[in-house]
Write a protein that binds this DNA or RNA. Structure first.
Length: 816
RNA sequence: GCCGGCGUGGUGGAAUUGGUAGACACGCAGGACUUAAAAUCCUGUGGCAGUAAUGCCGUAUCGGUUCAAGUCCGAUCGCCGGUACCA
């Protein structure tokens, strides 16, 4: 019978759904496995090949874990708040609710058509009020703990989206979403104190199994640096200029100071050339971040005339400059400049002819540093900090690049921030029994020109009463960023219907933490970092448990898939028109082909170009597998004379090829071992190639023993589950193979009994020899090797100086 | 600039982690089947020379360590990712 992918795929998708095959519940008798992939944003373009790569990989992992006896949870949902739906609404006046609904339905259809082993009973949507009730609840808990606060910030402002952005959302000075220009703008914003968790977010990385690059990117992003704060007095003034430095050992070399243009102190000082300074402030405020940092490191600045700072270690009077190579957002927004030991300060000093004073020699020993001369810099650092602390002009400090998280968006399609402002009582959370604060209907989705949320126009929603004093009060009109719903979604999967609690404790204790989380590298300093922070907070307020091994970390293991590029290796994008929609392939070849192709195309963690020819190759492979069924028999009588009809030629060939059932058994065991190990190590491409090797071998046989074929079907199942189920049934099995045990292999049989090893003469392979596995080096063998014709010929006229035999690996002869 | 990663046939890639480089697949060439095409099957396929056996060369480039290097070390070139005046 011909392989008809569509027919059998629909059949088994229906079977899994009808039988609730992948729905799981807490079962304390079984070990659990919680596999997770990033839930998609349901865009209008539908699921793309990148989603499928990630989802298929963990689907394979989860299906195997299940066969290994784990109570395996693999959930899915939709991260459905976000800008595209809202921008589309502005353009076409279609409510985001409508677009989102349509897109979700399409995504679900595509996911089901690919045959993922999702527990659909746990499906969640972040836009569902029953869901975002708890997103709002988390915000209120943070507010109560002082982790959410409102502040006027100089924020990143996307001029095109008219929206404030977190640092993490600014990519090379442009908006992560639309690529628009990002400028600085002063705005009142809700902030989350992620910085309180900075150390825990770094330390937590030690015990979890994340890819090294992910750990590194996260800790670089948090950017912890140890140093000191030092106060510099200003001559004839009460004011002090506080700086942060990681090199307090170079204090004696500080020959001038530089402060950021936004530094508040500029308002209070008596500066002679104040108009010049103001002009400078204005020009740098107009620069975007990208301009400010891309001017080939050329540095501009203006000296504050009439003012001098005093270097506390030697009482030297030094000039003060304002320059925009100093950022207000890091440290104190002011530095002591040490041109001899800092490249940037050096460039600046050269340009403005400032004094350069060396204080550390080539051997890292202090010079020109008064009483500290001769000290090694590490020792110097400690002593000088102590000295500063004793004089109360400085102290050891830690600084982070990480900033608090700007958590409000002046937009419509997001979770309303559940806060109320009363002119008398200040900001108050909406009482928890009134949650969720539902997103009201509006007609006009456009934000105001100054970036007011569209919600400001819904007057009867905005106006309310103060939960404390009962007088007139107004609701917050900003909404949460699109990351809010994804911060904690993997917790809600475990108890998606609970109306009274975010999650039931027993369920949290059983399922958490996530055992394996796969997603994109692009989320490393966004979602992945945010969700670790929120989870730690949830652990602090006892909503989620602390794990005995990894503590308050949500994910035991994190991996990332490489991007799929368009044909020819160009990034897929709508504008280039090279986006590959899986629908056509699912229809033409079937889900199993798409799944196996995506796994076979290359190393999982590497970017790789889509190739239609490759898809076809996999389709050929699956057809070959399908055709093997016809050869399966209970009692193979391979060479028997009564089975000759039509196979005469093949039988002769079989004899010629010397097919032995023992060799096939060995290959099977080897394949079970390799496929299993490769899945665990995410080496899906070589797992598939091993399956191909097995199939190529089976294909040479006239008849295949049923038990061999059954085992093969079981290890194929995670990759091509529909075909595997269909063949499994055809083999006479009544039940789905999803609960069959993963086949075991025999270690002895997983190893060939013979090995062919090379024989080298002076480093060049001249011959090879077949030996029994584990043949030990011996005199006899040496004699035999040396007398082999090819070897003897190459040794002619030479004397053997060394004879090396590494068991199962190589024989190497050195001759002169 | 700094920090990571990578560089292997015409192509995607394998290589038990120092042990016969090129598994598996795509493509290509030749052949079988067919009126023909598609599909399928068989054979070949790193380069150069040779009918062949075989020889020489070959994992970005140059050098080193080793009986043995795609793998380790040093330098250079190139590509990709992260980050960006972080004090």
């Amino acid at each position: 019978m011909k392989y008809q992918a569509n027919k059998i795929e629909k059949k088994w998708q229906k079977y899994w759904e009808d039988n609730k095959t992948f729905e799981v519940v807490v079962d304390s008798k079984k070990d659990k496995f919680y596999g997770l992939v990033e839930f998609p944003y349901p865009s209008g373009d539908g699921l793309h090949t990148g989603h499928l790569r990630s989802y298929t990989a963990l689907d394979i992992v989860c299906r195997k874990k299940r066969m290994e006896g784990f109570n395996t949870l693999y959930p899915m949902g939709m991260d459905a708040f976000g800008l595209p739906a809202e921008n589309y609404a502005i353009k076409t006046n279609t409510h985001p609710q409508i677009t989102t609904r349509k897109n979700i339905d399409n995504f679900v259809r595509q996911l089901k058509a690919t045959g993922f082993a999702f527990d659909w009973s746990r499906f969640i949507e972040t836009t569902d009020p029953k869901y975002y009730k708890w997103t709002q609840w988390i915000f209120i808990q943070m507010f109560k703990k002082g982790l959410a606060y409102k502040s006027s910030e100089n924020i990143n402002w996307c001029t095109s989206c008219k929206i404030g952005l977190a640092n993490e959302e600014v990519v090379a000075g442009t908006c992560e979403r639309c690529g628009g220009e990002v400028i600085k703008k002063e705005k009142e914003q809700w902030m989350l104190k992620i910085t309180n968790y900075a150390d825990r977010l770094i330390d937590g990385l030690d015990n979890i199994n994340f890819l090294d690059t992910i750990k590194k990117q996260q800790s670089d992003w948090i950017g912890k640096s140890q140093g000191a704060e030092v106060d510099f007095a200003i001559k004839d003034s009460e004011e002090k200029l506080k700086v942060f430095t990681t090199r307090p050992d170079t204090l004696f070399g500080a020959t001038f100071m530089v402060i950021a243009p936004e530094h508040p102190m500029l308002e209070n000082l008596d500066i002679k050339n104040i108009t010049e300074i103001k002009e400078y402030q204005e020009t740098s405020a107009k620069k975007t971040d990208i301009e400010r940092s891309s001017e080939d490191k050329d540095k501009t600045g203006v000296e504050l005339k009439g003012l001098k700072a005093i270097n506390p270690v030697n009482n030297e009077e030094i000039p003060i400059f304002v320059a925009d190579y100093i950022m207000m957002g890091y440290g104190t927004g002011a530095i002591m400049a040490v041109p001899a030991h800092d490249e940037r300060d050096f460039v600046f000093a050269k340009k403005y002819n400032l004094k350069i004073k060396e204080v550390i020699n080539d051997n890292n020993i202090a010079i020109n540093s008064g009483e500290f001369n001769g000290l090694d810099i590490e020792e110097f650092k400690q002593k000088i900090v102590k000295w500063l602390e004793d004089k109360k002009i400085g102290k050891a400090t830690v600084n982070y690049k990480l900033h608090d998280w700007i958590f409000s968006r002046q937009r419509y399609w997001g979770e309303p921030i559940p806060m109320i402002k009363c002119t008398e009582c200040g900001w108050l959370p909406v009482p928890e029994n009134e949650l969720p604060v539902s997103l009201p209907e509006v007609d006009d989705f456009k934000p105001g020109d100054e970036g007011e949320s569209p919600l400001t126009k819904v007057v009867d929603w905005v106006n309310t009463t103060c939960p404390k004093c009962g007088k007139f009060a107004q609701r917050e009109t900003d909404v949460m960023p699109n990351w809010a719903g994804s911060n904690w979604y993997f917790v809600r999967y475990l108890d998606p219907q609970n109306e009274n609690k975010l999650i039931d404790k027993d369920k949290a204790d059983y399922w958490l933490p996530v055992d394996w989380y796969n997603g994109g590298m692009e989320h490393t300093t966004l979602h992945l970092l945010y969700s670790r922070f929120v989870y730690k907070f949830l652990a602090d307020i006892n909503v989620v448990p602390k794990d005995s091994k990894i503590g308050d970390e949500p994910y035991t293991k994190r991996t990332a898939q490489g991007m799929i590029l368009g044909e020819g290796g160009i990034k897929m994008s709508k504008s280039k028109g090279n986006v590959i929609n899986p629908d056509g392939y699912l229809e033409k070849y079937g889900a199993d082909t798409v799944r196996v192709y995506e796994m076979f195309m290359g190393p999982f963690d590497q970017s790789i170009a889509w190739d239609d020819k490759g898809v076809n190759g996999v389709y050929r492979f699956l057809n070959k597998v399908w055709d093997l069924q016809d050869k399966v028999v209970d009692q193979p009588i391979m060479m028997s004379s009564d089975r000759t009809k039509g196979h005469k030629k093949l039988e002769e060939r079989q004899k010629e090829l010397n097919l032995k059932i023992e060799d096939l058994e060995r290959l099977l065991n080897k394949t079970i071992k390799k496929v299993g190990e490769d899945i665990d190590n995410m080496k899906f491409n070589t797992a598939v190639s091993q399956l191909m090797i097995m199939v190529n071998e089976l294909d040479r046989w006239i008849e295949i023993k049923q038990d061999i074929f059954e085992k093969f079907v079981l290890i194929l199942a995670p990759f091509a589950p529909h075909m595997a189920e269909e063949m499994w049934q055809a083999l006479g099995n009544k039940k789905s193979l999803t609960d069959q045990a993963w086949p075991e292999y025999n270690q002895d049989l997983a190893q060939d009994d013979k090995v062919v090893i090379g024989i080298q003469v002076n480093g060049k392979v001249r011959d090879d020899i077949e030996l029994d596995f584990d043949t030990e080096p011996s005199e006899d063998l040496q004699v035999e090797i040396l007398t082999r014709e090819k070897i003897a010929r190459n040794l002619e006229g030479k004397e053997v100086v060394k004879f090396i035999h590494i068991k199962n690996k190589i024989i190497s002869i050195v001759a002169k």
